[in-house]
Write a protein that binds this DNA or RNA. Structure first.
Length: 462
DNA sequence: TATGATT
């Protein structure tokens, strides 16, 4: 089995595959079977374009699996139906696996296209992308009035095709009337990504006064808070305060049924969030993905997976269709801080050019500094932005419940923030929710550390 | 830079 194994990767020469051919992953193959041994088994379903046994990159060892591409798409389907989990090869304990390779079945075949000309139709977009593969779906995003939003979704039959379209088209040209060059990127269909976005938005909007930010901020914040609260509750008391960074959170949040969120926000806290005036409450879906810096959510699709919907304000256009690529986490978060600080006069950062829907009306938050909450209700927050004061800190945590106090520690000599502080809620569930959502949250170059305040008495390691 | 700054 070891020793010499001349592996032929090109079984037959001159055989073309369908453009929509499916690459199959074959698993549970005995390690003594090479391409030539496997060929007869698979050939019965059609002409093989390529069959490759996977070898360890370094040791060259047979990995017990292979990739198989038939010339015809149909052959792959037949083979999968006939073989997948249907028989067990000699020496194996589990049945053979025959299924589309990960590279084929990835959700990553759907592209988001931005910076289109608003006059461009589905057909125009189709023509543009056609050269790069088989297009299964092509949708121009439109507002309620039917006008294009200047962006589209294009779904290819494979990840590879989609990737080649990105390579060829992203930034390749600027459509007449568009403010920057064409954007072609993988669409954010992935649930985890969506959740991560939501997590980001809590920070983005949570640090704004929700009443003066986008109307949806209240919703997303509350939805998120509820989500986190539900989580906290369902985990009982055993939530580890040391959940480190987003990966953990995303994982945990991904387990939630985000569609079960009630559309109605929680009781408004501290009189801050008057109900959003220009939102159609009756039409709000369970999850709302606001448009942020040109981010688009997933549009409603007739027969797709409308787990997430994009909803725009009544008549209010979204934030325009700026380049979604500009919206990487870091920059978004930092922009959020800048926008925030621009709103509040007490801060020193230069306002940035981003226009807000309304001139900010600063609502003075009555601030309760007295009285920490009971045990389990008090958070220690570290890595705060330098410019955050008590109020900003409170704003950031309001979405998770009633904040009974917030305090940023200041250096007495310089009157500068020491970048840490405390927030107290009136109940432990809110505190847990806040930890879950905000610990590890990236702002600027730093990530917030949010954990329960150490009890005064004995701060033992255990 | 690290846990509510006068017990």
């Amino acid at each position: 089995m070891n020793g010499s194994e001349p592996i032929s990767i090109h079984p037959e020469s001159g055989n073309m595959k369908d453009q929509d051919a499916i690459k199959l992953f074959i698993g549970q193959i005995p390690r003594n079977l090479e391409e030539k041994d496997l060929k007869p088994l698979f050939e019965q379903f059609g002409k093989i374009h390529e069959l490759t046994v996977l070898k360890d990159r370094y040791t060259g060892m047979h990995k017990g699996c292979a990739f198989l591409t038939y010339c015809a798409r149909e052959s792959a389907i037949k083979a999968q139906n006939a073989l997948h989990e249907q028989k067990t090869l000699p020496g194996m304990t589990r049945p053979i696996q025959v299924k589309p390779a990960d590279s084929e079945s990835r959700g990553d075949r759907k592209l988001f296209v931005g910076m289109l000309n608003k006059q461009q139709t589905e057909e125009d977009v189709y023509r543009l992308f056609e050269p790069y593969g088989v297009i299964e779906e092509c949708t121009v995003l439109r507002g309620p009035d039917g006008n294009s939003k200047g962006c589209a979704f294009v779904k290819f039959s494979t990840h590879t095709e989609a990737q080649s379209a990105i390579s060829a088209l992203h930034g390749s040209q600027t459509m007449p009337g568009a403010s920057s060059s064409l954007v072609v990127k993988f669409a954010d269909t992935d649930k985890e990504r969506t959740i991560r976005r939501m997590q980001q938005m809590v920070g983005q909007f949570g640090i704004f006064n929700p009443a003066i930010a986008l109307p949806f901020s209240t919703y997303s914040s509350y939805a998120h808070a509820q989500q986190a609260a539900i989580m906290a509750a369902s985990h009982g008391g055993y939530l580890t305060p040391s959940v480190a960074f987003p990966a953990t959170q995303i994982h945990q949040m991904g387990a939630l049924n985000i569609n079960s969120l009630p559309p109605t926000p929680m009781t408004p806290v501290s009189g801050l969030s008057s109900p959003p005036a220009n939102i159609t409450t009756s039409a709000v879906p369970s999850i709302v993905t606001p448009i942020v810096n040109g981010f688009t959510g997933i549009p409603h699709q007739p027969n797709g997976h409308p787990a997430v919907e994009t909803v725009y304000t009544n008549g209010l256009p979204p934030y325009s269709t700026q380049s979604p690529t500009a919206a990487d986490t870091l920059q978004q978060a930092f922009t959020g801080v800048q926008q925030y600080t621009a709103i509040y006069p007490a801060t020193t950062l230069t306002p940035i050019g981003q226009t807000l829907p309304q001139p900010p009306q600063v609502i003075q938050q009555q601030q309760q500094r007295e009285g920490e909450g009971p045990e389990g209700c008090n958070l220690f927050i570290y890595h705060l932005p330098q410019e955050f004061g008590d109020n900003e800190l409170m704003q950031m945590f309001l979405p998770f419940g009633t904040v009974i106090s917030s305090k940023v520690f200041m250096d007495r000599a310089t009157n500068q923030s020491k970048c840490f502080g405390f927030v107290s809620f009136d109940n432990p569930a809110s505190a847990q929710a806040a930890i879950q959502a905000m610990n590890g949250f990236q702002i600027g170059m730093k990530r917030l550390k949010v954990q329960l305040k150490r009890p005064k008495d004995a701060s033992r390691p255990y």
